[in-house]
Design a protein around this nucleic acid. Structure first.
Lengths: 190, 190
DNA sequence: GTCTATATAGAGATAGAC
DNA sequence: GTCTATCTCTATATAGAC
């Protein structure tokens, strides 16, 4: 036994993700990272030569991790409606963490899309696309099992979740976000 | 006759708002403004001593202008549902302008909320609050005249619109945003 | 009201020692 | 892998002439 120390690269990514989700990409500097991790700026650059490279690593990790969690929701033996609730709950969890001011990583980056180079912008789009696919699968299943009304578009679910995070963290917090989710589920129910 | 020249202060505000709606606050500099307007950085500072002061002027103007347009929608002699359509159409108009990459000013600023001082952050909150009030009024009217289903919360409308702008300008554009609006109206209809 | 010039601070990034 | 030191660029902001 013994607590395995998280390697520096991972700690940098963790801090970077947290800061971007709260302050945004352009409000996060290498100095912020080096201060939080406890090493020097040059040492951060040893792990990530450029900011773009770091964002890329961040987005690739985020995509994988989020998809793994989403898969668990998709694979569970529950109704489509329950899956939709759990899926929305993933976004609520983000907002409930820490100071309740964290948004979705890609929700923040899509606002600052012009600060990204094309490879990184493409990863943001990919995140949204795979989310749309997951939501569509849930909606289809709900239409099949009769828990959700058929013919709904997944776009509004993603828009409500991303927009809900941003507006709720500004005013109302997790409670406001929960209200939004509840209303959304109600409207999509059969 | 003769075209009245827009004064410099207004031209600065116009360019600043456009740049923030497309690139974000932290990706917009005084140099960007001075280049676009055709004067020097120091001259921009003559009109707005600090960036915070400029953002404040921007938000105060935005609040007034947007409320004036919303008032026209609220005062028109049409059903609640039609008013809701027109209200959502205001956000669509933003996205359709220019390169179809413009989001709501406050939608951008809420992502970069920590880059604002409290007075400016309060103005962003005020914008969202007054939007919630307007939407609530429309929903109430629609419930009264039977065009919209009663008991709906305005929060999801605002979330879908703000989130819809951000996700649609990243992928799908005005068409995607229109889909979101259509779905939203359908779900809120009686 | 606009200009030139400058102050100051912070950013991302690199070189090279340990 | 981390450090010190430095480079270069850009940011906000100010002083003072015209």
């Amino acid at each position: 036994m013994g607590t395995a120390k998280t390697d520096t690269r991972t700690r940098i990514l963790d801090v970077a993700q947290d800061l971007i989700q709260r302050h945004g990409l352009n409000a996060m500097s290498f100095k912020d990272l080096s201060d939080a991790v406890g090493i020097r700026k040059a040492s951060v650059h040893h792990h990530f030569a450029t900011k773009a490279e770091m964002v890329r690593a961040l987005l690739e990790r985020y995509q994988v991790e989020f998809q793994q969690i989403v898969r668990k929701v998709l694979d569970s033996k529950v109704s489509g409606k329950t899956k939709l609730k759990r899926y929305c709950g993933l976004f609520l969890q983000t907002l409930e963490e820490g100071d309740q001011d964290k948004s979705c990583l890609c929700g923040m980056l899509v606002a600052e899309l012009y600060s990204l180079d094309e490879p990184e912008a493409a990863l943001v789009r990919k995140f949204f696309r795979s989310n749309i696919d997951s939501i569509q699968a849930i909606l289809d299943e709900g239409a099949q099992d009769g828990s959700l009304s058929p013919g709904s578009s997944p776009d509004i679910v993603l828009a409500a979740l991303e927009g809900g995070l941003l507006t709720a963290r500004c005013d109302g917090g997790p409670e406001r976000f929960s209200t939004i989710i509840r209303q959304l589920i109600k409207m999509l129910s059969a």
